[in-house]
Each structure stands twice: as C-alpha cells, then as structure tokens.
Amino acid sequence: MKHLNNNPYSTHHDISLLLPWYVNNTLRSAELQNVENHLKVCLTCKRELLALRKLSVAVQQEGSFDSAALASFSHLKNRIHATDNENKSTAIFISKPTHGATNRFAVKASFSFALAAALVLALVIPGYVNIKQPTNDFRTLSNSDIAKSHNNEIRVVFANDVTKQQMETILSDVHGKIVGGPTEQSVYTIQITTATSKKEVLARVEKLRQNPNVIFAEPAYALLSSGQTDQGTNL
C-alpha cells in the first residue's frame, strides 16, 4: 500500500478504497492501523463500513442447490482419454499432455524437423551443463580421440509404436547392434559393426533416417562437444 499523505481528502479516498478488505479481515497490519485510525474520525467511512458489511453478508448467502451437475467429471475424463488417443494416432515427439515428469514421445510427421532439432538440444545441453572436467582444458582440431571412439556409433530414437521385431529388422538392415540406451529421452546408441569410416557410418545414418519407424538418427560424434564423455552427455 502506498503511504498515505497529509491531504485529508486523499487520505479519506485511499482509506475508503481499502474498506472492503477491512471487512473481509485480510488487511495487513500497517493498512489495518491506518483504516482503524481513520474510522475513529470519519463518519462517512463508518457509514460505508456498515453498508459493506451488509453487502458481505448478502454475498455469502447461499441458495439451495440441485447437485445434478456433479457427475460431469466423467465428461472431463472422456475428453482427456480422447486427447490421449488422438496423440497416439498422430504420434511423434511431443510429450503426452504436458506433464513434465512423464515425457512420453509421440510422433507427428509434419513436425519432424523441429522435433529433431529439439532432440539435439535435449542431448547436447544437459551434457554441456553436466560436463566433467576434462584432463586437458582444450582440444585441437587434430585431436580426434573422442571422435574416433564414437566413429561407428549412432544415436537413434525409434517411433513410439515400433515393435521389438521391427527394431531388430531396422538394426540388421544397417548391421547395427544396440550398445546403449534407451535413455530417459528414449535414445538408443547403436554401434555399426561393419562400418569403420565416417562415410560408411553416414550412409547408415541416411538409411535409418529414411525408415518411417525411426524418428531421429545422428552420428554419435556429431552430438559431442569438446571434452564430453558418454556420462557427460547423460546418454
């Protein structure tokens, strides 16, 4: 509340505006004190106070109630389930409702690009935050130790409704095997057993991306920044 000045009219006006909350007993101590002091000397506000108390009583009066509407929770439940089913049928990478603690991935083809970008952020940023202190605090372009160790690994997210059998078929198509995951973000790490060069790995990545049951595929080394380890990326 602003400080009340010495102008009698202004004080009266400011106090008068506070009277409804004097009536409902929610004024804080300083405001309460000001109002009580003013009420001792202002007849207009005293009258106003009586009227406001009447109004307060009237507002709190309740009529009888036909509680037929109490059953409407079932409508809400139907709506929630209808939305869930809709999400499943159009599925992609949007977490179910917006529940933070239950990130379930669903797929929607039209959003695939934006969603893939979001996944990259989800993979890279947490790793960046949790980054472990590297032995060296810098890495030159010629230092490819980290990249080498991930040269034949690919991070993959499968579609929500993919079966185990479909997953195995996808893996055998690219001569890959799962060596990690799934993470909380449903990311698997796949090692390509027959590929040794980046070019060959990229070809497998391309093949994976063309598969409708794969939402996301990216070489593991592309998702690592300087000094990161697997633990650092939370994968």
Binding site: W21, N24, T26, L27, R28, L55, S56
Partner: peptide, 25 residues
C-alpha cells in the same frame, strides 16, 4: 443482490465475489 449484480461488469462481479466470498486480499 442477484438483480444488482446484473448491473455490474464481469470484472466487477469477480472482484466482489473474490473479496467477500473467497476472502482474498
């Protein structure tokens, strides 16, 4: 009161209700 409330705007009715019935500051 029911008649009188109709002379108010939605926002005014909301303030009345929240003050006197819900007891908010």
């Amino acid at each position: 009161l029911e008649s009188a409330l109709d002379t108010l705007s939605l926002d005014q009715r909301a303030v009345i209700e929240l003050t006197y019935f819900q007891g908010l500051h």
